[in-house]
Nucleic acid binder design. Sequence first.
DNA 1: TTATATTTTTAGACTCATCTAAACCTTATC
DNA 2: GATAAGGTTTAGATGAGTCTAAAAATATAA
Lengths: 220, 220
Amino acid sequence: MNTLSFTEENYLKSIYHLSEGGVKEVSTNAIADDLQTKAASVTDMIKKLANKEVINYKKYKGVNVSPTGKMAALQVIRKHRLWEVFLVEKMKFNWDQVHEVAEQLEHIKSPLLIQRLDEFLGYPKNDPHGDPIPDEHGEFNSKPQISLSEAELHHEGILMSVKDTSTPFLQYLDKIGAYIGAKIKIMDRVVFDGSHEILLDNKRTLFVSKEVAQNILISE
Amino acid sequence: MNTLSFTEENYLKSIYHLSEGGVKEVSTNAIADDLQTKAASVTDMIKKLANKEVINYKKYKGVNVSPTGKMAALQVIRKHRLWEVFLVEKMKFNWDQVHEVAEQLEHIKSPLLIQRLDEFLGYPKNDPHGDPIPDEHGEFNSKPQISLSEAELHHEGILMSVKDTSTPFLQYLDKIGAYIGAKIKIMDRVVFDGSHEILLDNKRTLFVSKEVAQNILISE
DNA sequence: TTATATTTTTAGACTCATCTAAACCTTATC
DNA sequence: GATAAGGTTTAGATGAGTCTAAAAATATAA
């Protein structure tokens, strides 16, 4: 497999995410969309990645990650999430400020640094958005969770993670007082627009839109 | 000036270092040698850098950094040295292990991160090799220092910094027990091979070669 | 001062990652 | 099962950074 370039790592990570752990076939357009590039560029790159045997590729049939590719992707994800923890815990970044910088830091090549960083941070299990951090073997345990929009009415759970990690969404959550670890109970669901009435930390009830509900994951 | 690419930053840093702060003219070959590349590649790149007005360039006459280029170079150097401090102080790296990783980290783009890192480290004035860390305006005070090989016989001073930061040299210093802050007195100088007899921390006398003496800087 | 050696630049080619435009497959629809 | 619509791949070009080989300029030396 050799080493992957900066760009190759980004493609691989995108494919891994889009395939939800290596099951589904991922389309050229989906990758292009995710990486803000053009389909033709994606075709070129997936040929390279297929040659390096980190993905499986059949013309016109989409791609998915191979076992070695999955490991490589998980290492990049591990680095990304550890750096995010570092930025929030040690550099006093807000959780909506970390993504862009972590995108750069995740490509730093130094196994020793990652090992020491992990130790320095106290072997964290989750990043600031609640996503699990794989260990050096790519292992991680994801606790069962369900989106607010899919959970049953009157279900109560802990805010475990968020699907969307964009600045506007995270700033919105800050504004309404939602955070990883908060207690959320679904009080009502509005049929008209799919919005949700929720009880936050047994203190306040408020309404969130369908879009917001889909991006909040709580414990089952 | 716009932003500089990864590679452009490396060239600029090299030119800055080779010109001892932007004074002397630097030759194409010197840069090629420093960056382990070919003279032809250097010629291409210095044209680009001259177009961006970070260096002054006259064909066949060498280059030196412009005021804007000097500032840009100092920012990269600032980042490099702050990361080195981080690696040694927080990540428990040895001083001979930091260079390669800092070469990568110095190109991370995030003014906020550097500001917070500086604060986190307690606004250090020097990196693990004794080199001064410029502040955000590119200012730094370098205390007067002189190489062991140039100082007067029987001169005594503190080991302030090292010119060579390669792993073999630093490991050699570890071995003989020399470190930044150590007290060194020049006991004798051997005419035959230019080697030096020194007294280290008032404890041990030992001989170091001419090459080693040239790379150790002590207070005047 | 002319010849020689060295340094620097140019010319042309290569790789990587990207693009547009056109050609090509696959799928959905009637 | 023909056709339209959409997705995917190829062809050819571009820019960044690099290289080798050859030409041009400068420096050195007899």
